[in-house]
Amino acid sequence: MKLTLKVWRQKNGSTPGELKTYPADHVSPDMSFLEMLDEVNQALIMQGEDPIAFDHDCREGICGMCSLMINGVAHGPKEAITTCQLHMRSFKDGETITIEPWRAKPFPIIKDLVVDRESFDRIIQAGGFISASTGSAPDGNAIPVAKPDADKSMDAAACIGCGACAAACPNGSAMLFTAAKVAHLGHLPQGQAERHQRVVNMVATQDAEGFGNCTNIGECAAVCPKEISLDTIAMLNRDLVIAALKGIEPVVK
Protein backbone atom coordinates (compact mmCIF):
# COMPACT_ATOMS: atom_id res chain seq x y z
CA MET A 1 0.00 0.00 0.00
CA LYS A 2 1.08 3.55 -0.70
CA LEU A 3 -0.37 6.33 1.39
CA THR A 4 0.03 10.05 1.77
CA LEU A 5 0.16 11.40 5.31
CA LYS A 6 -0.64 14.93 6.32
CA VAL A 7 0.84 15.19 9.78
CA TRP A 8 0.71 18.01 12.30
CA ARG A 9 4.26 19.15 13.03
CA GLN A 10 4.96 21.56 15.85
CA LYS A 11 8.38 21.98 17.43
CA ASN A 12 7.09 22.83 20.88
CA GLY A 13 4.27 24.50 22.76
CA SER A 14 5.41 28.02 21.94
CA THR A 15 5.94 27.76 18.20
CA PRO A 16 3.08 27.52 15.72
CA GLY A 17 2.56 24.23 13.94
CA GLU A 18 1.49 23.20 10.48
CA LEU A 19 0.34 20.18 8.53
CA LYS A 20 3.17 18.63 6.54
CA THR A 21 2.87 16.00 3.86
CA TYR A 22 4.86 12.78 3.91
CA PRO A 23 4.70 9.73 1.68
CA ALA A 24 4.31 6.30 3.27
CA ASP A 25 5.27 4.00 0.44
CA HIS A 26 5.84 0.64 2.04
CA VAL A 27 2.77 0.01 4.10
CA SER A 28 1.60 -3.52 4.78
CA PRO A 29 -2.06 -4.06 5.61
CA ASP A 30 -0.89 -6.13 8.59
CA MET A 31 0.85 -3.15 10.17
CA SER A 32 -0.73 -1.31 13.01
CA PHE A 33 -1.22 2.40 12.53
CA LEU A 34 1.63 3.16 14.91
CA GLU A 35 3.93 0.68 13.17
CA MET A 36 3.19 2.56 9.97
CA LEU A 37 4.31 5.76 11.71
CA ASP A 38 7.39 3.89 13.03
CA GLU A 39 8.36 3.08 9.45
CA VAL A 40 7.85 6.66 8.33
CA ASN A 41 10.00 7.80 11.23
CA GLN A 42 12.81 5.37 10.40
CA ALA A 43 12.88 6.86 6.91
CA LEU A 44 12.80 10.43 8.26
CA ILE A 45 15.72 9.70 10.59
CA MET A 46 17.80 8.32 7.75
CA GLN A 47 16.98 11.40 5.68
CA GLY A 48 18.29 13.54 8.51
CA GLU A 49 14.89 14.89 9.44
CA ASP A 50 13.26 15.04 12.83
CA PRO A 51 10.97 12.04 13.34
CA ILE A 52 7.31 12.60 14.18
CA ALA A 53 6.76 12.60 17.93
CA PHE A 54 3.69 10.71 19.10
CA ASP A 55 2.65 9.18 22.41
CA HIS A 56 2.32 5.43 22.73
CA ASP A 57 3.24 2.73 25.18
CA CYS A 58 1.45 -0.57 25.67
CA ARG A 59 0.26 -0.86 22.05
CA GLU A 60 -2.55 -3.13 23.13
CA GLY A 61 -5.26 -0.61 23.85
CA ILE A 62 -5.17 -0.39 27.62
CA CYS A 63 -2.62 2.16 28.84
CA GLY A 64 -4.35 5.15 27.24
CA MET A 65 -1.11 6.75 26.15
CA CYS A 66 -1.75 6.78 22.40
CA SER A 67 -3.97 9.42 20.91
CA LEU A 68 -4.22 10.92 17.39
CA MET A 69 -7.09 12.44 15.46
CA ILE A 70 -7.07 10.34 12.30
CA ASN A 71 -8.99 11.98 9.48
CA GLY A 72 -10.74 14.05 12.11
CA VAL A 73 -11.85 11.14 14.30
CA ALA A 74 -10.28 10.41 17.66
CA HIS A 75 -8.55 7.00 17.48
CA GLY A 76 -9.48 6.67 13.81
CA PRO A 77 -12.24 5.12 11.74
CA LYS A 78 -12.97 1.93 13.69
CA GLU A 79 -15.18 2.05 16.72
CA ALA A 80 -14.26 0.89 20.22
CA ILE A 81 -10.51 0.63 19.70
CA THR A 82 -7.53 2.84 20.35
CA THR A 83 -5.13 4.11 17.69
CA CYS A 84 -2.58 1.44 18.58
CA GLN A 85 -5.14 -1.29 17.83
CA LEU A 86 -5.99 0.17 14.45
CA HIS A 87 -4.50 -1.73 11.52
CA MET A 88 -3.69 -0.44 8.08
CA ARG A 89 -6.11 -2.81 6.41
CA SER A 90 -8.76 -0.34 7.53
CA PHE A 91 -7.42 2.09 4.91
CA LYS A 92 -7.41 2.04 1.13
CA ASP A 93 -4.32 2.03 -1.05
CA GLY A 94 -3.56 5.55 -2.23
CA GLU A 95 -5.51 7.20 0.54
CA THR A 96 -4.47 10.50 2.13
CA ILE A 97 -4.62 10.39 5.91
CA THR A 98 -4.66 13.51 8.07
CA ILE A 99 -3.12 13.03 11.50
CA GLU A 100 -3.55 15.66 14.19
CA PRO A 101 -3.01 15.83 17.94
CA TRP A 102 -5.82 16.03 20.47
CA ARG A 103 -6.95 19.63 20.36
CA ALA A 104 -8.35 21.16 23.52
CA LYS A 105 -7.11 24.05 25.60
CA PRO A 106 -6.43 21.93 28.69
CA PHE A 107 -4.31 19.57 26.50
CA PRO A 108 -1.48 21.89 25.45
CA ILE A 109 0.69 20.53 22.65
CA ILE A 110 4.18 19.51 23.76
CA LYS A 111 5.52 18.52 20.36
CA ASP A 112 3.98 17.35 17.09
CA LEU A 113 1.26 14.90 18.11
CA VAL A 114 2.16 14.77 21.81
CA VAL A 115 -0.06 16.66 24.23
CA ASP A 116 0.01 17.25 27.98
CA ARG A 117 -2.92 15.52 29.70
CA GLU A 118 -2.02 16.23 33.31
CA SER A 119 -5.28 18.13 33.66
CA PHE A 120 -6.91 14.68 33.85
CA ASP A 121 -4.69 13.73 36.78
CA ARG A 122 -5.66 16.93 38.57
CA ILE A 123 -9.34 16.10 38.14
CA ILE A 124 -8.66 12.76 39.84
CA GLN A 125 -6.68 14.51 42.57
CA ALA A 126 -9.76 16.59 43.33
CA GLY A 127 -11.69 13.53 44.46
CA GLY A 128 -11.46 10.61 42.06
CA PHE A 129 -10.60 8.15 44.82
CA ILE A 130 -11.90 6.46 47.93
CA SER A 131 -10.00 7.57 51.01
CA ALA A 132 -8.99 4.16 52.28
CA SER A 133 -5.47 4.23 53.62
CA THR A 134 -3.50 1.02 53.42
CA GLY A 135 -4.30 -1.29 56.28
CA SER A 136 -7.70 0.15 57.12
CA ALA A 137 -9.76 -2.24 55.04
CA PRO A 138 -12.30 -4.73 56.37
CA ASP A 139 -12.50 -8.20 54.84
CA GLY A 140 -13.15 -8.14 51.11
CA ASN A 141 -16.45 -9.95 51.55
CA ALA A 142 -17.62 -7.85 54.52
CA ILE A 143 -19.75 -5.64 52.30
CA PRO A 144 -21.57 -7.49 49.54
CA VAL A 145 -21.89 -5.61 46.27
CA ALA A 146 -24.87 -6.49 44.11
CA LYS A 147 -23.64 -7.92 40.84
CA PRO A 148 -25.45 -5.35 38.66
CA ASP A 149 -23.78 -2.57 40.66
CA ALA A 150 -20.37 -4.20 40.36
CA ASP A 151 -20.92 -4.61 36.62
CA LYS A 152 -21.98 -0.99 36.14
CA SER A 153 -19.03 0.14 38.18
CA MET A 154 -16.72 -1.95 36.04
CA ASP A 155 -18.28 -0.58 32.83
CA ALA A 156 -17.31 2.92 33.95
CA ALA A 157 -13.97 1.89 35.45
CA ALA A 158 -12.87 0.64 32.03
CA CYS A 159 -11.96 4.25 31.14
CA ILE A 160 -8.30 4.46 30.10
CA GLY A 161 -8.02 8.24 30.47
CA CYS A 162 -6.83 8.71 26.90
CA GLY A 163 -8.62 12.02 26.40
CA ALA A 164 -10.42 11.08 23.18
CA CYS A 165 -13.70 12.28 24.71
CA ALA A 166 -12.46 15.81 25.29
CA ALA A 167 -10.67 15.88 21.96
CA ALA A 168 -13.75 14.79 20.05
CA CYS A 169 -16.18 16.99 21.96
CA PRO A 170 -17.21 20.08 19.99
CA ASN A 171 -17.28 21.83 23.37
CA GLY A 172 -13.91 20.52 24.55
CA SER A 173 -15.62 18.95 27.56
CA ALA A 174 -14.08 16.28 29.76
CA MET A 175 -17.41 15.18 31.15
CA LEU A 176 -17.23 11.59 29.98
CA PHE A 177 -13.85 11.17 31.69
CA THR A 178 -14.99 12.79 34.93
CA ALA A 179 -18.31 11.00 34.87
CA ALA A 180 -16.67 7.63 34.29
CA LYS A 181 -14.77 8.03 37.55
CA VAL A 182 -17.82 9.36 39.39
CA ALA A 183 -19.86 6.39 38.18
CA HIS A 184 -17.11 3.85 38.86
CA LEU A 185 -16.91 4.86 42.53
CA GLY A 186 -20.53 5.91 42.91
CA HIS A 187 -21.91 2.50 42.00
CA LEU A 188 -19.99 0.83 44.84
CA PRO A 189 -20.97 0.86 48.50
CA GLN A 190 -17.38 1.73 49.37
CA GLY A 191 -17.69 4.94 47.37
CA GLN A 192 -20.76 6.32 49.13
CA ALA A 193 -19.16 8.22 51.99
CA GLU A 194 -17.47 10.71 49.69
CA ARG A 195 -19.91 10.45 46.82
CA HIS A 196 -21.30 13.96 46.76
CA GLN A 197 -18.22 15.80 47.87
CA ARG A 198 -16.36 13.92 45.16
CA VAL A 199 -18.59 15.05 42.33
CA VAL A 200 -18.61 18.68 43.50
CA ASN A 201 -14.82 18.76 43.73
CA MET A 202 -14.21 17.03 40.44
CA VAL A 203 -16.63 19.22 38.49
CA ALA A 204 -15.14 22.38 39.99
CA THR A 205 -11.64 21.22 39.04
CA GLN A 206 -12.72 20.21 35.58
CA ASP A 207 -14.09 23.73 35.03
CA ALA A 208 -10.99 25.32 36.53
CA GLU A 209 -8.77 23.33 34.18
CA GLY A 210 -10.55 25.02 31.30
CA PHE A 211 -12.59 22.18 29.86
CA GLY A 212 -15.82 23.04 28.09
CA ASN A 213 -19.28 22.01 29.16
CA CYS A 214 -21.39 19.09 28.15
CA THR A 215 -24.30 19.67 25.81
CA ASN A 216 -25.23 16.00 25.66
CA ILE A 217 -24.13 15.60 22.08
CA GLY A 218 -22.61 12.17 22.53
CA GLU A 219 -19.53 12.56 20.34
CA CYS A 220 -17.43 11.47 23.33
CA ALA A 221 -19.20 8.16 23.77
CA ALA A 222 -19.08 7.57 20.03
CA VAL A 223 -15.27 7.73 19.94
CA CYS A 224 -14.61 6.22 23.36
CA PRO A 225 -12.38 3.18 22.83
CA LYS A 226 -13.88 1.61 25.95
CA GLU A 227 -17.48 2.49 25.04
CA ILE A 228 -18.19 4.39 28.25
CA SER A 229 -21.87 5.27 28.22
CA LEU A 230 -23.55 8.67 28.47
CA ASP A 231 -25.38 7.14 31.43
CA THR A 232 -22.34 7.96 33.50
CA ILE A 233 -22.84 11.64 32.70
CA ALA A 234 -26.48 11.43 33.78
CA MET A 235 -25.29 9.92 37.03
CA LEU A 236 -22.76 12.70 37.55
CA ASN A 237 -25.45 15.28 36.88
CA ARG A 238 -27.83 13.63 39.33
CA ASP A 239 -25.15 13.48 42.01
CA LEU A 240 -24.26 17.11 41.46
CA VAL A 241 -27.88 18.25 41.81
CA ILE A 242 -28.22 16.28 45.04
CA ALA A 243 -24.92 17.68 46.28
CA ALA A 244 -26.13 21.21 45.51
CA LEU A 245 -29.40 20.57 47.36
CA LYS A 246 -27.36 19.35 50.30
CA GLY A 247 -25.33 22.53 50.14
CA ILE A 248 -22.01 20.79 49.55
CA GLU A 249 -19.34 23.26 48.49
CA PRO A 250 -16.20 22.29 46.59
CA VAL A 251 -13.10 21.76 48.69
CA VAL A 252 -10.22 22.16 46.28
CA LYS A 253 -6.72 22.05 47.56
Binding site: L19, R103, I217
Partner: peptide
Protein backbone atom coordinates in the same frame (compact mmCIF):
# COMPACT_ATOMS: atom_id res chain seq x y z
CA UNK B 1 -11.85 25.15 25.80
CA UNK B 2 -11.51 24.60 22.08
CA UNK B 3 -10.39 28.13 21.29
CA UNK B 4 -7.41 28.93 19.12
CA UNK B 5 -7.19 25.34 18.04
CA UNK B 6 -8.28 24.74 14.53
CA UNK B 7 -9.32 21.17 14.05
CA UNK B 8 -8.40 20.58 10.44
CA UNK B 9 -10.27 17.52 9.39
CA UNK B 10 -12.93 17.35 12.05
CA UNK B 11 -15.30 14.56 11.27
CA UNK B 12 -18.17 13.93 13.60
CA UNK B 13 -19.40 10.44 14.10
CA UNK B 14 -22.44 10.88 16.20
CA UNK B 15 -23.42 14.53 16.46
Amino acid sequence: ATGGMKRYSEHKRHT
